[in-house]
Simulated scan of single mutants.
Amino acid sequence: MSKVWSAQLPVVQFRVARPTDQLDKIITFYRDGLGLRQVAAFEGHDGYDGVMFGLPGVDYHLEFTQHVEGSPCPAPTKDNLLVFYIPDQEARDAIVTRLEKLGFGPPVEPENPYWRRSGITIEDPDGWRVVLMNTSGLSGTY
C-alpha cells in the first residue's frame, strides 16, 4: 500500500517548521502541555537548535528551531491556527487543564466564531494559536 499523497504531489512525509526565541517554553507547551510526542531534537546544527514533534506514524511533524543569534518570530494574525480535532471532550478538557497548570492560558477568544462551537483556543508562547476542537456532535471534522 502506497503512502504517497497523490500522483501530482508524491509526498511521503510532511513537516511544518517555524522559528522561535523560546525553544524551552515551546517544548513545554507542545510536549508536556499538548502531549505531542517528541520524535527528534538537535543542537548546534549550523547555529540552530531544534525539536520535532510527531503525529501518529511520524509522517507529520511540527518543527521548531532557534538560532544562536536569535530567531525572531513575530506574532501571527489571530486566525493563523493549528487545529487538533479531539473526539473525547473530557480528554480535550484535560489538555486545557494541563496547559493552564503549566502556565499557558487562559483560553483566548477566537477570531473566527466557527471555532467557538466546540473548540478551545490557546496561544503558545510565541502567540500562535492552537484550537482544541471537540468533534463529538459535529458532522465531519472540517
Score class of each variant (00 low, 15 high):
residue 2 S to I: 03
residue 4 V to L: 13
residue 4 V to H: 12
residue 7 A to Y: 09
residue 9 L to V: 15
residue 11 V to Y: 10
residue 12 V to R: 12
residue 12 V to P: 02
residue 13 Q to A: 13
residue 14 F to K: 04
residue 14 F to M: 13
residue 15 R to E: 15
residue 16 V to P: 01
residue 16 V to M: 10
residue 17 A to S: 07
residue 18 R to K: 11
residue 18 R to M: 09
residue 19 P to F: 02
residue 22 Q to T: 14
residue 24 D to R: 01
residue 25 K to C: 07
residue 26 I to P: 02
residue 26 I to A: 04
residue 29 F to W: 03
residue 29 F to C: 01
residue 30 Y to F: 09
residue 31 R to G: 04
residue 31 R to Q: 12
residue 32 D to R: 05
residue 32 D to S: 11
residue 33 G to H: 05
residue 35 G to T: 02
residue 35 G to R: 01
residue 37 R to Q: 14
residue 37 R to S: 09
residue 38 Q to C: 04
residue 39 V to K: 02
residue 43 E to H: 14
residue 44 G to R: 08
residue 45 H to K: 14
residue 45 H to R: 14
residue 46 D to R: 14
residue 47 G to E: 09
residue 48 Y to H: 14
residue 48 Y to N: 11
residue 50 G to A: 05
residue 50 G to T: 04
residue 51 V to H: 02
residue 51 V to A: 04
residue 51 V to T: 02
residue 52 M to S: 08
residue 54 G to I: 06
residue 56 P to M: 08
residue 59 D to K: 12
residue 60 Y to K: 09
residue 60 Y to E: 09
residue 61 H to E: 14
residue 62 L to W: 01
residue 63 E to V: 00
residue 64 F to C: 00
residue 67 H to Y: 12
residue 69 E to I: 11
residue 69 E to K: 13
residue 70 G to T: 08
residue 70 G to P: 13
residue 71 S to H: 04
residue 75 A to V: 15
residue 77 T to F: 06
residue 77 T to N: 07
residue 77 T to P: 04
residue 78 K to R: 15
residue 80 N to F: 15
residue 81 L to P: 00
residue 82 L to K: 04
residue 85 Y to S: 11
residue 85 Y to D: 11
residue 85 Y to G: 07
residue 87 P to K: 04
residue 88 D to R: 07
residue 88 D to L: 08
residue 89 Q to M: 08
residue 90 E to C: 06
residue 93 D to W: 06
residue 94 A to N: 09
residue 94 A to W: 04
residue 95 I to A: 02
residue 98 R to V: 00
residue 98 R to E: 01
residue 100 E to K: 10
residue 100 E to S: 11
residue 101 K to H: 15
residue 104 F to E: 00
residue 105 G to V: 00
residue 106 P to V: 01
residue 107 P to A: 15
residue 109 E to W: 05
residue 110 P to Y: 13
residue 110 P to S: 13
residue 111 E to T: 02
residue 112 N to E: 15
residue 113 P to N: 11
residue 113 P to K: 09
residue 113 P to Y: 08
residue 114 Y to P: 02
residue 114 Y to K: 09
residue 115 W to R: 03
residue 116 R to V: 11
residue 116 R to N: 12
residue 118 S to D: 15
residue 118 S to Y: 11
residue 120 I to R: 05
residue 120 I to Q: 08
residue 122 I to W: 03
residue 124 D to P: 01
residue 125 P to E: 06
residue 127 G to K: 10
residue 128 W to S: 09
residue 129 R to K: 13
residue 129 R to D: 00
residue 130 V to H: 03
residue 130 V to E: 05
residue 130 V to F: 02
residue 130 V to A: 08
residue 130 V to K: 03
residue 131 V to P: 01
residue 131 V to W: 02
residue 133 M to N: 14
residue 137 G to S: 08
residue 138 L to N: 13
residue 139 S to V: 13
residue 139 S to L: 11
residue 141 T to C: 07
residue 141 T to D: 10
